[in-house]
Design a protein around this nucleic acid. Structure first.
Length: 358
DNA sequence: GGTAGACCTGGACGC
DNA sequence: GCGTCCAGGTCTACC
């Protein structure tokens, strides 16, 4: 058994920074709400290894950033340790240091006190792309179910019994029928197989996606050319790559625009208004937008680090969210709408002074 | 360039 | 328990 110790940025809080984006609730990820531990399997050099990541002594939302303990369910080679380090760093966004987060807080100071800034993602780009595609045109429980089935049917099992997210080649070699019938991905079957083939082939476009030198516009075009990726998915994959200038606008954006920002009109009009509302946040627009929504979810369901994966699957349906929002009442809505307008103006002013360091 | 309709699945709801 | 309706973003055909 190997134990890897990682020193995260000094403001890092595992519970807060893992439970910051919905993917922490998707298989193979499992957050244990009592132990504050993230458990999953990683594919290291083609071989599965289970890992449990914890941060002993850390408070969920405050206190000093302490060492991360990564306990594997088998012994790792030197090369596998190096690979694990890369994947965990990507997943937890350990590469976004305290100065990086501060540059976001200068643009949107609302999240400074909570320290919000990092968004959980997957250990690989491929998993992020597939998770995004399985979140399109489906309600949240459907996304939860598809990811669970993909892992159960096509994942590789670690010595400790944990299964990995399927790798590109496994997906490329799978039949669309198997994906449809056993993983319940529906009409996405062929697109998912095509994505597997593109990633497995080492296509030049994939290299450009992760290249920081690729401009946001070029990246957006490359992503739109991927099967199953439209404007929403492209913008979402961009934020997962640390490009926060675009908003993945969907029905949640419309709900947020209507209920929190107090916008009126048809869905298209509201999406446009939400986009314009966050434009003053510039290349931090997504984080401002996301943490505003996330904060709202937490006001309904409690702190994200207390959400149970299985219960959340059914709690996050449109009907239940709408009911909960209604319950929260008009009062909050009016107060926040007025605050939101003030904030956008402040952000516009702050962006001028912080933009160069962001 | 813009728009309508098909694509699937699972939750919600009525009976 | 069963049938029906609805939510959800992308893709393709058509104007």
């Amino acid at each position: 058994m190997t134990t890897l110790r990682l020193m995260p940025p000094r403001d890092y809080r595992l519970a807060r920074d893992v439970c910051s984006y919905g993917y922490f609730l998707l298989s193979p990820n499992r957050w244990t709400i009592h132990e504050h531990t993230l458990t999953r399997a990683l594919l290291l050099g083609g071989k599965p290894a289970g890992v449990a990541i914890s941060q002993p002594g850390a408070e969920p939302m405050s206190g000093g950033g302490t060492e991360l303990l990564c306990r594997f369910d088998r012994a790792l080679t030197k090369q596998e340790i190096a690979d694990a380090r890369i994947q965990i760093t990507r997943m937890l966004r350990l590469d976004e240091d305290a100065a990086h987060i501060r540059s976001f807080h200068r643009v949107d100071p609302r999240w400074k006190k909570l320290g919000r800034g990092r968004l959980f993602r997957s250990p690989t780009l491929f998993e992020d792309v597939l998770k995004t595609v399985t979140s399109c045109n489906v309600t949240w429980p459907g996304t939860v179910h598809m990811n669970r089935r993909l892992v159960e049917v096509l994942g590789k099992q670690s010595p400790g019994g944990l299964k990995t997210f399927p790798d590109p080649k496994t997906i490329a070699d799978a039949s669309p029928l198997l994906l449809r019938e056993r993983c319940r991905v529906g009409y996405r079957d062929k697109r998912i197989v095509e994505l597997g083939a593109i990633f497995a082939s080492g296509d030049a476009a994939i290299t450009k996606i992760e290249d920081p030198a690729t401009s946001d516009d070029d990246l957006h075009e490359i992503l739109l050319a991927l099967p199953g990726v439209g404007p929403y998915a492209a913008a979402n994959i961009m934020q997962l790559l640390g490009r926060y200038s675009r908003l993945p606008l969907d029905t949640e954006s419309v709900r947020h625009g209507r209920t929190i920002l107090g916008f009126r009109g048809g869905s298209k009009q509201i999406m446009l208004r939400v986009k314009r509302h966050f434009e003053p946040f510039g290349d931090q627009a997504f984080r401002s937008y996301w943490f505003e929504m996330w904060h709202h979810y937490e006001s309904i369901h409690g702190p994200a680090h207390t959400w149970d994966r299985d219960a959340t699957g059914t709690a996050f349906t449109a009907a239940k969210l709408n009911a909960a929002i209604k319950k929260l009442g008009e009062k909050t809505k009016e107060r926040k709408a007025s605050q939101a307008s003030k904030r956008a103006k402040t952000a516009k002013a702050n962006l001028g002074s912080a933009g160069s360091s962001a």
